[in-house]
Simulated assay, not measured.
Amino acid sequence: MIVESSSDSARKTFFRVLGPLRVCSGTREAALPESRQLIVLAVLVTEVNKAVPLGRLVDAVWGDTPPVTADKQIQTCVWRVRKALVQAGSRADLIETVRGGYLLRLPDGSVDTQLFEQLRERGRLRARAGDPVGAVADYRAALALFRGEPLAGLASRALEPVAAYWAERRLTLLEECFDVELALGHHRELVGELSLLVDEHPLREQLRWHLMTALYLSDRRADALAVYHAGRAALISHVGLDPCARLQELHQRIIAGDPVPVPEAVAYPGPALRGVS
C-alpha cells in the first residue's frame, strides 16, 4: 500500500525520472545544475540506496574519453548537486560519500519509479481478486506518472538502457490495462488512444491486437481488418515476418464475424467470449 511518510512529509524530497529529471522538496522544485551534474544525479537516483562507484559516474558523463581530471570534476558535480538540493529545502545528507563512490539514500516512495511499481503491483492484485475497476484506477495512476520519455534530454550512453527499461515497463503496463478495460467493455473509449499508440509502435503486436479488438467490438469491422493489413505490411517490411499466431487468429475471427475472446490475463468474472456490441 502507498503511504506518505510521517511528520516530515512536507520536506520530503521526491525525484522524478519518468520524463525529464525533476526534484521537488515539499512544494519547491530544485533548480538543478547543468547537464553534467544532471547525469550524475540521474545515475544516483536510478541506483537509489546503492553505492555507485566513482568510475561508473565518470563513464556516464564522458564515456570512453574521460579527462585526466574526471575524478575531481565528479566531486565538484556532486557538491553542486548537494548545494542545489539543500537550497530547495532537502536534507544536506541525502547524498553520502562512501568508499570509492557515492550513495543517494532515500526512504521508499521517494522516486516516481518506486510509486509506479507499487501501483502496478496493487493493480495486479486487484485484477486477480476480481476488482477490475480498482485495477484500472491503479494502472492509470501508475501510467500518469510518466511525463514523457524517461530521463529525457540527458545525453549519456550509460543511461540509455535505463530509459529504455522504463519505456518498456510503461508499454507493458498499458497492455495489461487495456486487457482489463476491454474486459470491462470500454472498447469504444479505447480506440483513439490505441490508434495513437499503434502509430507510434507499429511492430508491437499486442497493441495492434487490442486495437483490432476494440474496433471490432465497436462495430468497425472494416477498420479492424485494415489495422491488421497495415500491421502485416509493416512487419514484412521491417523484419520479414508475418503477424504472430494470435493476430492471425483474431483476423480470421473478424473475417468470419465470430465472437472474440476477452483477454485471458484478466481475473474478471465475465463471459469467456464477447460478441460484437
Rank of each mutant, 00 (worst) to 15 (best):
E181N: 03
E160D: 10
R140K: 08
D138P: 09
V136N: 00
L143Q: 08
T172K: 09
S156M: 13
T172M: 10
D138Q: 09
A164R: 15
A155P: 00
A135C: 13
L125I: 11
V133W: 04
L184N: 01
D138C: 13
A135W: 12
G153R: 14
L182F: 08
R128P: 02
A152K: 06
A163N: 07
R147Q: 06
L154C: 11
E175M: 03
W166L: 06
G185F: 05
A142V: 04
R126G: 00
V133P: 00
A155N: 07
P150Q: 13
G134R: 12
A142G: 05
R128L: 13
A164W: 08
L174Q: 15
P150S: 11
E181D: 05
D131T: 01
R124Q: 15
A135D: 10
P161L: 03
R126H: 07
P150F: 15
G153H: 12
L171D: 10
H186C: 12
A142R: 03
R157G: 14
A129G: 10
R157D: 15
L145G: 01
W166K: 04
Y139K: 01
E121F: 13
F146H: 07
H186A: 14
V180Y: 00
L171Q: 13
A137P: 03
A164S: 15
C177S: 15
L154N: 09
E181K: 05
G134H: 10
G148V: 01
F178S: 08
F178L: 06
R169V: 05
G148W: 07
R170Q: 15
A183F: 07
P132F: 05
A142N: 05
E175D: 07
A141L: 15
R140F: 02
L145M: 06
D131V: 01
C177F: 06
A152Y: 02
R122F: 09
G153K: 14
V162I: 13
L154T: 07
L154I: 04
L151H: 06
E149V: 08
P150N: 12
E160Y: 02
R126I: 01
A135I: 07
R122M: 12
V162G: 03
A163W: 07
E121L: 14
A158I: 04
A127H: 01
G123K: 12
R140E: 13
A141I: 08
R157V: 07
R122V: 10
R126C: 00
E176C: 01
F178I: 06
T172P: 00
R140V: 01
P132N: 04
R126W: 04
L151C: 05
L151N: 05
R169E: 15
A137H: 14
V162Q: 07
A163Q: 10
A163T: 11
G153E: 12
G148T: 04
L171K: 13
A183Q: 05
A183Y: 05
